[in-house]
């Protein structure tokens, strides 16, 4: 009887508890959601391997050395190559310039040769020219003589049509005679003469200014028109009369 009462008691309580639910208070989900949002991530404990840090360090150092050597090698190679390329290019440019120079020199020499071929050497040239001119002059004189003879024969008055070229060398070869200088007459200074000319010009300008005309008469006597610059108008800002402010207004 006692066991039956106990079983009935337990069954009734179990049924009452499992069939009836209790609503949680409002806001519980917010608490749980906030707790879920701020749950810290569980940190994985580090593996206790004493050899691992050394291996990592050695590997890191070896890698750094290899990378450093590679970088330095690359820099050195590139620097050398850059220098070599620059030198080559410079040489190339130099060669190009040289080639250009040689080409220009060749062209110049060719021109010179052509000139040389066409013209006689400079040292010989005046002699040849003189010879030519002399030859031309003789030919022309002969022709003129012939023409004179012909004109005489024809009865016309002979008139020289062409001027004979003056032989410079013959002139140079001739002795130069200084003009005779009279000791009694004082020598005129060229500078003083130029200054006197300028004074004359100024006098002419002054005379033209006096006449209030723009026409200027130069020393040569020709009229020159000179445009004067417009004078600046002497306009000023109106004078502002300032009165002393009364300090009591402040």
């Amino acid at each position: 009887m006692d066991d039956k009462n106990i079983k009935d008691f337990d069954r009734y309580i179990e049924q009452s508890m499992n069939e009836n639910f209790v609503e949680p208070p409002f806001g519980m989900w917010n608490r749980i959601s906030a707790e879920l949002g701020h749950t810290p991530v569980e940190e994985v404990p580090p593996v206790a391997n004493p050899m691992l840090p050394k291996a990592i360090l050695v590997g890191f150092v070896a890698g750094a050395l290899v990378i450093g050597s590679l970088i330095t090698g690359w820099i050195v190679y590139n620097g050398h190559s850059v220098n070599s390329t620059t030198s080559e290019t410079s040489v190339y440019h130099y060669n190009g310039k040289q080639q250009n120079l040689t080409k220009s020199a060749e062209v110049a020499t060719e021109n010179i040769r052509e000139e040389v071929v066409v013209a006689p050497p400079a040292t010989i040239e005046p002699i040849n020219i003189s010879a030519k001119t002399v030859a031309v002059a003789t030919i022309k004189t002969l022709n003129s003589e012939k023409s004179l003879r012909n004109s005489i024969t024809s009865g016309d008055v002979p008139v020289p049509t062409q001027k004979l070229p003056i032989d410079k060398e013959s002139k140079v070869q001739e002795p130069y005679y200084f003009p005779p200088v009279d000791i009694d007459v004082p020598a005129t200074d060229s500078h003083s003469q130029i200054a006197s000319d300028n004074e004359l010009d100024n006098q002419d300008l002054e005379e033209s200014k006096d006449n209030d005309s723009k026409k200027l008469i130069s020393s040569s006597g020709e009229q020159r028109i000179k445009f004067r610059k417009k004078r600046k108008s002497s306009w000023n800002y109106p004078h502002i009369i300032r009165t002393k402010k009364n300090r009591n207004h402040y």
Binding site: M17, F21, V22, E23, P24, M28, W29, I32, S33, L36
Partner: peptide, 18 residues
């Protein structure tokens, strides 16, 4: 997914609160 977590909470919270 917070949406499904909320659904599960609304489904089981009365029983679990008891």
């Amino acid at each position: 997914d917070r949406k499904f977590q909320s659904i599960l909470y609304n489904l089981l919270s009365p029983k679990m609160f008891a």
